[in-house]
Amino acid sequence: MSTVLARQNRLKIVSLLSPAYIWLTVAIFLPLSAMLYFSFLSDVPFGDAEWHYTSENYQAFFQTSTYATLLWKSIKLGLTVTVISVLVGFPCAYVLAKAIKGKSREALFLLVILPFWSNSLVRIFCWAIVLRGNGVLELGLNAILPFEVDVNLMFSTPAIVIGLVHSYLPYVILTSYLALQAIDDNLIDAARSMGANKLTILWRVILPLSLPGLLAGAVLIFVPVVGSFMEPRILGGRVGTYFGTVIEDQFVAVFNWPLGAALSFILLAVVLVILATASPALRRAQT
């Protein structure tokens, strides 16, 4: 009797779960494995191209400093964008979670995260319009300031950073907000009743308790920024060569897929290390 039930249950579980997970396997996990395989080939195994197994693609990364330099440049870009987003976004999340109440809080929160769900490419394009020489920013500043300024941030690192912060800022606001909102107001009241001032409360109570959320937001920003290529291309022009754009080139311009696969895999390794390091914090942020 119980085995029949168990079998029935197993059937239900399998039939409900397998479509979704087979799809994920085919579209995500098999491709990642295929990429690992490809990264050890000398050439694409299609048509009549000659190919053999090799570790040259990985050696390329370690032999010339070009790729390592670019990876480091991408990591620095990730750190810059993450730090700025955290510094800008955390106070914003705090104001939303603790200083604003009721309906207006919900509306403002929605306003903050709404752009995040609109097309990221389009938003980068918006900045291209604003930042270009003779663009809106320059015209606006010249209208306000008594002297002429020449603002052409387009095709510069600051432009890339501004665009990326704009793209990913809502992440850190979202996760910090959720963490801050979960802090029982009684804890703040309790700290006050024991004589703590605002700074002490921030440092000793609020920051430690919202740290998992803050870290989760930071990781969610850092990871995609390290792999970004579209933003540097559009806003960076010639200075916009990063690890991500090099990978893109291997697939759409140079057509050296095995090298692209190896570089992608190195990037994935970096990402996994970061995710693994942060995973205790991420798990805590989830609950």
Binding site: N186, S193, N197, L209
Partner: peptide
Amino acid sequence: IPVEKRDIGMMFQNYALFPN
């Protein structure tokens, strides 16, 4: 005088112990 300067001790319904 705000709470933090009143020199009181308070116990809360849900205890409000700092979990960290």
